[in-house]
């Protein structure tokens, strides 16, 4: 339970803006509510995404085609849960919500998470789409969060980025295996890529002028790079990698090169679906959220037993 009390020496937003720099603020600072809420929203989204990403990948522990892959997949899913744990702790340190409240919101369908984790993933050859491309995209964003102004968030990112590096290597290894496999394996990989590519481009969210929360988060140093800059960095690194593995980049969404920059034709992307997903209203959202909620509900009795004072 969080105790709210009035603090006379709370920093105002102007002061925060002035002092904002990497890892500038910690629980010792009296941050204004606006900052604490914005940071909570950002970190909770991140934590939820770790949990829902793990949920999406867990069936592939079983479906792994070798013992080593099974071990690696199990360890990856475990790491993501560990990241969720760290991030909820970083979010809790802002004093707005408890972990329990955030997990309850996730189960109730009120917690937001990354667009890519709302889509079903059923086949092994789809796994590099998450484990290589989406994780690679996430890595771009996470690396910049090492410089966020909320120190506990930046601190969590040190460990998370370290582990994500291994995940991406694992994802790339699965992709290499498929890309150098039989003709059929290459075809399956290509079709998975075509299906996931637009979603991956939307990973970074809407272009800057549509982003509602960016301005404030940018001013107070929570965010250090815009969505568009992040997507540039991702495309610079990952378009060549996709080509290296023999993947053909789909004609749509159109991507032009202008003065050394990639310009994605935004109108070629399905933003209606993106916003449907962002409000947890997509068909896949219900499926992922509800089945996870049902699993959580089924073990509520064990949590209750755990909460009981020991020896009573």
């Amino acid at each position: 339970m969080i105790i709210h009390y009035k603090r006379p020496d709370v920093m105002n937003v102007e002061e925060v803006t002035e002092r904002a720099e990497p890892r500038a603020f910690s629980p010792q600072d009296d941050m204004p509510e606006e900052y604490r809420k914005a940071a909570t929203r950002m970190i909770q989204f991140h934590a939820n995404s770790e949990i829902m990403g793990a949920y999406l990948e867990r069936p592939f522990i079983r479906q792994s085609p070798s013992l080593d892959r099974k071990l690696a997949f199990s360890a990856k899913v475990q790491d993501e849960i560990g990241h969720g744990q760290l991030l909820y702790r970083a979010a809790e340190s802002l004093g707005i919500k408890t972990r329990e409240e955030m997990l309850d919101e996730l189960a109730a369908g009120d917690g937001k998470f990354l667009n890519c984790f709302h889509y079903p993933m059923t086949e092994w050859w789809e796994t590099p789409m998450i484990a290589f491309f989406v994780d690679g995209a996430a890595m771009r964003r996470q690396a910049t969060i090492k410089r966020t102004s909320w120190e506990p968030y930046a601190h969590a990112m040190d460990k998370i980025c370290f582990e994500e590096g291994f995940h991406i290597k694992h994802g790339e290894d699965i992709m290499r295996e498929l890309a150098t496999g039989t003709r059929r394996e290459r075809q399956l990989l290509q079709s998975a890529f075509e299906e996931w590519w637009p979603r991956i481009l939307q990973f970074f969210g809407p272009t800057d002028d549509q982003s509602t929360h960016h301005d404030f988060a940018d001013r107070v140093g929570l965010k250090t790079m815009s969505n568009d800059e992040l997507r540039q960095a991702f495309l610079n690194a990952y378009l060549p990698k996709a080509e290296k593995y023999g993947l053909e980049i789909p004609d749509e969404p159109r991507i032009r090169e202008e003065e050394g920059r990639y310009v994605v034709e935004e109108d070629d992307l399905d933003w209606e679906e993106f916003w449907e997903i962002a409000s947890n209203e997509y068909a896949g959202s219900h499926e992922q959220i509800d089945s996870r909620a049902a699993a959580q509900d089924a073990v509520a009795w064990a949590r209750k037993a755990l909460d009981r004072p020991h020896g009573s």
Binding site: I51, K70, S74, A75, V77, Q85, Q296, V299
Partner: peptide, 26 residues
């Protein structure tokens, strides 16, 4: 055991059971 991954009662027990599953696989 791996069926409990992302389904255990708490995040902590999820991590513990994942560890155990990986030990057994090892």
């Amino acid at each position: 055991y791996t069926e409990w991954q992302v389904r255990a009662p708490t995040l902590e027990s999820d991590l513990a059971l994942s560890n155990i599953a990986q030990d057994e696989l090892g």
